[in-house]
Simulated scan of single mutants.
Amino acid sequence: MFKRLETDHESDRRVVRLRFEHQEILASPGDSVAAALLSASVPRFRDAAISGEPRAPYCMMGVCFECLVEIDGIANQQACLVTVREGMAVRRQRGARDIR
């Protein structure tokens, strides 16, 4: 689906590890969560609130809200706007958001 462009110094590249559901994802420092998940071939980030249809990033700039995920237990995070951090836990957002 998406593939990271190789560089001359690919072997020297630093890695950030995060978890998506039960899968370890390797990302580059500075990647957004959305870019890291797409590079790892994750096809679905959330389920639509009404229909339950699978959704994934669309605009990659924070306008469409299709990339909503739960990050470290906090729901409604836009994956395209959050930079990866070592050890972060990311989960799919399922259904309608909880308004409290």
Rank of each mutant, 00 (worst) to 15 (best):
F65P: 03
D98R: 09
D47N: 08
S39K: 04
E24T: 03
I99N: 07
F2H: 13
Y58S: 00
I25N: 04
Q77C: 01
M61G: 09
F20A: 03
D98Y: 04
C59W: 05
F20H: 01
A34Q: 00
M88D: 08
M1G: 14
A35Y: 14
R44G: 14
I74T: 11
M88K: 13
E66R: 08
M61K: 12
A40M: 09
A56L: 12
V84F: 04
S11T: 10
D8F: 08
I74S: 13
T83C: 01
L68R: 13
R92Y: 00
S41V: 01
N76Q: 11
V84G: 04
V15R: 10
D12Q: 07
R13C: 12
R92H: 00
E10N: 14
V63H: 14
V90D: 04
F2Y: 15
A34K: 00
A89E: 12
A35W: 04
R85V: 01
R100T: 14
V84M: 15
Q77P: 00
G87C: 05
V90K: 05
R13A: 11
A35R: 11
R92S: 02
I74Q: 09
L68D: 08
V16P: 01
P57W: 11
L26A: 12
A89K: 12
F20P: 00
R46A: 10
L81A: 03
R4T: 12
R92T: 00
R44F: 12
A56V: 15
F45R: 03
Y58D: 03
A89L: 13
H9E: 15
D98V: 11
S39E: 08
R94C: 13
H22V: 10
A56W: 13
E53C: 07
N76M: 03
R44A: 10
V90C: 04
A36D: 01
I74C: 11
G52Y: 02
D47P: 05
L26S: 14
E86S: 07
N76V: 05
S51P: 02
V69R: 04
C64E: 11
I50H: 10
M60I: 08
G73C: 07
E6N: 14
V90W: 05
A89H: 15
V15Y: 07
R55S: 01
A36E: 06
V90Y: 07
A48H: 13
L68H: 01
Y58T: 00
D12H: 10
E66S: 11
Q78S: 06
V69A: 04
C64N: 11
Q23E: 09
A27P: 03
Q23Y: 01
T83E: 00
V15T: 06
P43V: 09
Q93F: 02
Q78I: 05
H9V: 13
F45E: 00
L5Y: 14
E6A: 14
H22E: 15
R85L: 04
V15P: 07
V90F: 11
I71N: 08
S39V: 08
R97A: 14
R94L: 15
Q23N: 09
E6S: 15
D12K: 02
G62L: 10
A96L: 13
G52S: 02
L5M: 15
D8T: 07
P57M: 02
V42N: 01
R46C: 02
R94Y: 15
I50R: 09
D12C: 04
P43G: 10
H9Y: 15
A49C: 05
